[in-house]
Structure formats: C-alpha cells, structure tokens
Design a protein around this nucleic acid. Structure first.
Lengths: 339, 339
DNA sequence: CTGTTAGCGCTTTCAT
DNA sequence: ATGAAAGCGCTAACAG
C-alpha cells in the first residue's frame, strides 16, 4: 500500500477561515445560511472559498448532521432495461435535491438483498428504494425501523415504509382480453418463474380472461419461462415440439416475448399474420422490435420518479404518499384479428 | 422539517466497548484486525457486536481514514443498454472489495459532466470511472490530481489517470469490409453525431474500406444520425426519399440499426434478402432482434470490469494498467451475399 | 496486549 | 454578529 500524493490537498473549511481571517463557525454559517453574517466577512469568505476551490467534505458534514444526503437503491439486475428505465425516473426525481444514490443489486436473491440493505444502512443512507425483490414484507418493515424504505411491487403503508403495487392480474387480463376480442381462442401463455408473485398474478389474469370468454383452460398451452429472452425462445419451441395448436401467445414479459418472436422467425411463422404476440412491460425497445410489440405498459419511469419523491417526503418528515399510473394496453403491430 | 424517530438508534463502537467492558480501541482493533487481542476480549466484543447488531458507521470511518470506500461512476445516460452493460462489469469488478459506487449521469454534456465530478469529489469518492463523455482530456487530467480516474474512450496514461480506447476506425472497417466481401458496393452509412469523436472514427473506417475496394465514396449515401433508434429510422427514410440505390447499410451503432430495421420493415423491404444491415456495439438485445443483428462487438462488460480493476489498483498505489479485448465482427443474420 | 488521547472536517450550542 | 469549544463515530499513535 503506497501513498498517493495528490498535488492539491483539498482545502478545508479551516483553511478558508484562516484565509478570510474569520472563525470556522462563520464560514459554516455562510455555507449553510444558518445566521446573519456581516457583508464584508461574507465577501471575504466567498472570495476565499472561490480562490481555494473549497467544497465542504460531505463525509464530515454527514457525520455531524447525521444526514448523508445519499439514498440507496436496490435493484435486482443492473443492466436490465426493466430496472434501468426505473432508475432513470429515480435519477430525475433526485435532480436538484442534493441527494446522490448508491445502487446495489440483489440479484433476485432474498439473502443478498438483505445483505445489500445492511451495507446501505452501514453507509448511513438517508433512505432506501427497493425495486421488486424477493424479501418478505416483514423483513422490509424490519429494516424500515432504521431508515425509511419505499418499495415497488408490494402494498405497504406505515410511518416510514411505503409500497407501490401495480395490478398485474388485470394487466394480464387486458392482454388476453385483447387477443380474445380479436377472435383468438387458442392462446398460449409463456409464464414467469413459478415462485414469483407477479408471475402468479399474471397467470391469474390470463385464466380469468379465458374463463370469462368460456374458453377452456388448456394446461398444455402454458409453459414456464424465467422472464429472460432465452426462456421465451425455449418455451416457444416447446410448444412446437409438443404440437400445440394456437393462434396467439401472451408472454409474461417483453423480454420473453422477444425470445418467442425469434423462435417464430426461425420457424418461418409470420407475426402477426400467422400468430399474434403480446408482451408485458413495454420496455423502451419494444417500439422498435420487428414488428413493434403489442404489450401492457408499466409506467417504469414514473414508478422511479414517484417512489423517489415519496421517499424524499418521508425523509423530510412529511406524510408517506404517492400514486403511480395504472397499467395500460399498448396495441402495436404484433396482434391482429384471427382469420 | 420534522424529526424522524427510529426505534433502534444504531449502536456505536462506544456502545459495544462498554457492553463488552473494553476500550473503544480494542473494539476497533478487532474490527480491523489491526493488532493482537486476547481471545476472551475478542469473544466478548464479538458477542456484543452481535447482540447490538453493530455495524461501524462508514462516514466516521471514512472521515478518519480518508477513504470513503466509494467510487464514482459517470455515465452519460443511465438506462441506455450501452452503459448498463458496462455498469454490470463495474458491479462485478467491485464485488467483494467493500467498495460501493455512486452513479451519476453527465447526459453527454461537458459542463454537466464536470459538475457531477465535482460532486463526486466533494463526496470524497476514492476514485472515478468516466464512461465516454465530452470533456477534454485536459479537464480529466485536471480532476485526476484530486482522485484517480479511469476513463473509457480516450487514450490516457499518467500516474493517476488511465484511459482505454477501442479502435473504432478499424471496427467500422471490419463492418464495411464484411459487406464488401459479400459483394455489396452501394453501402449506405448512418453515422453518429458529427461532433462525436467515436462517430468520426467510424466514418473514417467506412471510408477506408470503400477506398481499399476502389469504391467511390458517395456522400448521398451518408446520413447523420444521433445514435438513437428514432434517428436510424429517420436516416433510412431520408435515403428512400432521395431515391438512393444501395444494397446494404452500416449503422454507426446498434440502436440506430434497430431504427433502420424498423424503417425497412415498414417499407416491406426484407432483411437480409433485399438489404443487408450491420450495426456497431453488440448490445445484449442484438442477438434477439428479428433477424439477429450482424454487428461489431464492443466488450462492454469487460470494459467495465477491467476499468474497475485498474482503478482499484491505482487507488492501492499500484501501477495503472489494464487492457481490454479488441472489437470483433459478429456475423449473425442481417447480412448476406448480394445477388 | 490494552487503554488513553488526539483528531479527521464539519456544525452547533453557548457565550459575548 | 462572531468566536470558542464540544462533539458526531471512528482510528492511530503513544504509553504502558
């Protein structure tokens, strides 16, 4: 471990005080607008700050004030378009607030999630945004006794925990209902992982739409995926290998729809002419697939922004609240009336 | 501003010391393995830590040690698959090191980039990773006097600054050369923004490949995009509107290739049967486009991981080094021999 | 091996 | 209006 000598050792508030011929408290007061300071000292201090390129050491500030001006974000997979779109909302929500965010990934693993949250807590983040995840609500509530948490994908509402939950069931219903309206009756479903709550809800929506239209549920038409492209492709191939008859497929998320679409392409099956396809999420890329994907839009960006604003409110001792727009069917070009 | 009373005020090292009946320094020594401590005190302290769920306050540690155990990452656009794939590499590079990262976005704006870096510096990050960006090398070098910086997209090598630069020119050359080998001679080029250095280099590669094959450069075949999907689509339409003849198009990045591909689809032009298409980047989604995209692969993930490891080395006073794999042509299904 | 002391850089009473 | 002093939670000499 060698020393790393940087030319300009960053100047401290003390340096500024000396340079301006005032006490450190005066400098602090000017920095924070905490009290009236005579104009001449003000100017002198400001000049010194400028000259010495002084910027307060945030760690020292944080230690003293008990506020790190940092919030922690727990995603499950950095580099998934799903989370990234939400992160963009968070980023915008933080804009101009002085807060920065440290992003950690739980990798869809409850243990790891809890670990990461403990890390964030040790870093004294002022609050936490939890995006999806596998932790129990109880665990979340537990952590919320240390720092406020707002989470997506769960219904929560306490003094310092807030959750937003979208209606996956009715989202899936909308998707399948759309297909049924177009005359489809043999509708395959590429589900999400069985142990995932959202996935279960989407399956329920699929089922309800079928029931309502008096279409018998055919379990051979349902194949489990894991929300990734490859699994969508595999699922599709499985459907073909077992010689299922269907005119439409509903994929539980856009990524698996992409995979399904590729499987279809490889078989020379046209979308939507031969088979209709609908996804779920409306990832940014879904307006540029070939053809553009019909899907259920999740307000990913808004979720990020609204969750952030809600968290900031809780941090400031205000009431925890916030509401996100509902799911919405976006009809693009992968669905058409059955012939 | 109300107070936010959390049930369990986090315990401090002092609390642990008292509880275990030892001095704070002893606790610190055990925490850091800084010196030998008798087994019985060890056990007592460990028990106390466990009982009180103590975790050292990282802000206090940081203030004292002058190390925040945090690195700053400057991206240009959180929620671009390009940066996110690199971030995944960074994340993996940080794994198990005790470092966390705060990610800020420069939004392709030199001013904002510099601003964000100053923010990171005030937060006392131990180092900075700068992904692309518009700042001058001089400015980067300037900042590197405060904290080590490793940057992508520039060739740098000093005591505490390191840059990785991929050979965009030859990447573009490979793409176009591939097309020429397939018999294409009228090859359109959807460029990146004119003020972008990478974009200029890719144009140079396009030009060289053409020259080498004795194909005359036709400026009408070159249309400027901005690296986003929509611009690829627009560029393509412009080509059609001006009635250009061509059998292949090279897009300066995958995103604009996606847009171009959609424009082609809308015109009922088949890819690759009627027109061949090649992109640049090899984003994760490019193996699942319809059809899968032939492209120049950038080792995005490796760049992130290697940059991180290099930064960590510099932080530890070791020599700044690291090398990333070269660009590579990935032939998939959007290119074919001209008929 | 272990405790005492000083102090990282800042904010905040408390005096004046 | 301003300075002196104490202290946020931790670590690192320095004694012993």
């Amino acid at each position: 471990m060698a020393d790393t000598p940087y030319s300009s050792g960053p100047s401290t508030l003390m340096d500024v005080a000396r340079q301006a011929g005032v006490s450190p408290s005066t400098v602090s007061r000017i920095l924070n607008g905490t009290a009236k300071v005579s104009e001449d000292k003000r100017l002198a201090v400001l000049a010194a700050i400028d000259k010495m390129k002084f910027a307060p050491n945030q760690m020292a500030q944080g230690l003293k004030k008990g506020r790190s001006m940092t919030i922690g974000i727990v995603v499950q997979d950095i580099s998934s378009p799903f989370f990234d779109e939400t992160l963009r909302g968070v980023d915008d929500g933080l804009k101009g607030t002085g807060y920065a965010s440290v992003i950690v990934s739980g990798h869809w693993n409850a243990e790891e999630e809890a670990d990461r949250i403990r890390l964030l807590l040790a870093r004294k983040v002022d609050g936490i945004i939890l995006l999806s995840g596998r932790m129990s609500d109880q665990t979340v509530l537990g952590f919320s006794s240390q720092r406020p948490i707002v989470s997506t994908g769960r219904a929560l509402q306490t003094r310092n925990a807030l959750g937003f939950k979208l209606d996956n069931e009715s989202g899936a219903y909308m998707a399948v209902h759309h297909l049924i309206e177009l005359g489809h009756r043999r509708i395959a479903f590429i589900s999400g992982p069985a142990n995932n709550i959202d996935a279960a809800e989407r399956l329920a929506g699929y089922t309800r739409a079928l029931n309502e239209a008096h279409i018998e549920l055919d379990n051979d038409l349902i194949v489990e995926g894991n929300y990734h492209e490859a699994s969508g492709m595999l699922a599709m191939n499985r459907l073909f290998d077992t010689h299922q008859q269907f005119t439409a497929v509903f994929a539980a998320n856009d990524l698996s729809a992409y995979g399904a679409r590729l499987a279809l392409y490889r078989k020379g099956i046209r979308v939507p002419d031969d088979i209709s396809l609908v996804g779920f999420d409306d990832l940014p890329g879904s307006s540029y697939t070939t053809p553009p994907l019909t899907t259920i839009r999740q307000p990913l960006y808004d979720i990020g922004r609204i969750a952030t604003q809600a968290l900031l409110r809780i941090i400031n001792g205000e009431e925890a609240r916030g509401e996100v727009p509902p799911l919405e069917l976006i009809v693009r070009e992968t669905t058409r009336r059955v012939r």
